[in-house]
Write a protein that binds this DNA or RNA. Sequence first.
DNA 1: ACTTATTGTCTACAAAGCAGACACACCTCT
DNA 2: AGAGGTGTGTCTGCTTTGTAGACAATAAGT
Lengths: 112, 112
Amino acid sequence: MPDKSFLGEFEQMVLLAILQRAPDAYGPTISAELESTAERTVSRGALYSSLGRLEKKGLLRWELEEPTAERGGHPRRRFEVTHAGVEALKASRTALVSLWAGLDRHLGPETG
Amino acid sequence: MPDKSFLGEFEQMVLLAILQRAPDAYGPTISAELESTAERTVSRGALYSSLGRLEKKGLLRWELEEPTAERGGHPRRRFEVTHAGVEALKASRTALVSLWAGLDRHLGPETG
DNA sequence: ACTTATTGTCTACAAAGCAGACACACCTCT
DNA sequence: AGAGGTGTGTCTGCTTTGTAGACAATAAGT
């Protein structure tokens, strides 16, 4: 097996946040998920550029919602992780879990 | 808590590989660990530049070994993760574990 | 001596991460 | 109906990470 390019650290979290919020994954909710769950500040620039790259790689897709016009009035983009995205996520997790194995002495139990 | 800068994806794996191989963590063994456990190809350039950055951030330290002169004849650098490095690793793991929570339906059980 | 093996350094570039300014449509207020 | 406010998303430009591959130095084997 040659090597499939790995997900960046932030890319991985973005994909995970989409899965967590599905089917309500829009820019702002993804951002909120990251800030609450991962305790990480996210600027719009950082988020959307990552989202763009992920789409280009086929790991996510999105569709424009009806112009519900209820919040800003703007149609929102609903994001969704593709099958390839889920596979990439699995590969990353597998690698990390293997590397963590046996290190509880240093890292403590899972809940950190 | 403001936000501490996160570890890059590769940086995290390098640190973990050092912990796994300790106290025999030298360039080549770290590389081997990454290739076998994470199934990831590593070039020397990639590895050493990451190692250098990690040192600059205080997440690892190293010492030159006695010129044992047995393998290339060159003294080797033995790497060690610092306390700050371990803390960074814990923070990354905690964030990821929280984000994975409840997604078994998509990602399958831990062993991938 | 010349070749090969082992470890590490250097240079130069590509990809990912990031902040903040900008745009725009709708809403509310007056 | 014009002014200001709010909730999306876009764009530009820069910094940090990730990557490959050529190069250097030293010792061993021939």
